[in-house]
């Protein structure tokens, strides 16, 4: 099958180019995109990309596959390209390219850091642990599972245009994860840091984030919850 891969080494190349590579894939099996990429790398070892767990857990091989962001390791070729069509692999959009499919995630992590993604509790810790009722714990479902693959934020036009000011779907999902945590006592402070016109409110409800999340999470819903919390606090 034909694979077209984005190649760019900023230190040598004046501009990016697409490289076409023909790889032999078994006809009887549906490979994952990452498998095909490994076969291409066997032909041209200079191709660079990140991957680690190869089972959708680590979040390191997020890339743009035939126009849609996803994890190469859990995206079947049949779904990405379809029979007879070529596979087109590009880096996650909107971030600086370090090399080929490897992007610089600094801006993404900086936004994540801004939401203070850790539990803040100023009460004296109990002897054993801070308890939650099953209902309170349930509120964190659909939030804590995020693997920070960046597929969502890099598919979001609002993040492309304002990567330093809009927190983006991944960061906001985590912001809500701690706002919704019954053990966290910094709710008011967290909310007041999100009230400016950019951090949350640049979300235009385009829902690209929801459609690409490989873990099936829904950042748009979390953003809606944050907005209602801001509304309750601010009025």
């Amino acid at each position: 099958m034909l694979v077209s891969i984005y190649r760019y080494n900023p230190e040598q190349d004046s501009k990016p180019a697409m490289q076409n590579i023909e790889v032999d894939v078994p006809a009887d099996r549906d490979l994952m995109v990452l498998d095909v990429l490994e076969l291409a790398k066997a032909k041209d070892p200079s191709i660079s990309y990140r991957r680690s767990c190869r089972e959708g857990v680590c979040g390191s091989d997020g890339m743009n596959i035939n126009g849609v962001n996803g994890l190469a390791c859990i995206t079947p070729v049949s779904r990405a390209a379809g029979p007879g069509r070529k596979l087109v692999l590009r880096p996650l959009p909107g971030l600086p390219v370090i090399r080929d499919l490897v992007v610089d995630l600094t801006q993404f992590y900086r936004q994540f850091e801004k939401v203070k993604p850790w539990l803040i509790n100023d009460e004296t810790p109990p002897a054993i642990e801070r308890l939650q009722s099953p209902e309170e714990r349930e509120k964190l479902d659909g939030l804590y599972e995020c693997i920070l693959c960046a597929c969502c934020s890099t598919s979001c036009p609002s993040f492309w245009w304002n990567p330093e000011k809009f927190i983006g779907p991944a960061g906001l999902l985590q912001a809500y994860r701690f706002l919704a945590d019954s053990r966290d006592t910094a709710t008011a402070e967290r909310l007041s840091e999100l009230d400016d016109p950019f951090s949350v409110f640049r979300c235009r409800g385009i829902m690209n984030c929801v459609s690409v999340c490989p873990k099936g999470l829904n950042p748009t819903r979390a953003i809606g919850h944050i907005r209602s919390m801001l509304l309750r606090q601010g009025t």
């Binding site: 999100l194 009230d195 400016d196 016109p197 950019f198 951090s199 949350v200 409110f201 907005r227 801001l230 509304l231 601010g234 009025t235």
Partner: peptide, 8 residues
């Protein structure tokens, strides 16, 4: 003057 008020 705030994201919330603009939005409202």
């Amino acid at each position: 003057r705030s994201g919330l008020y603009d939005w409202l």
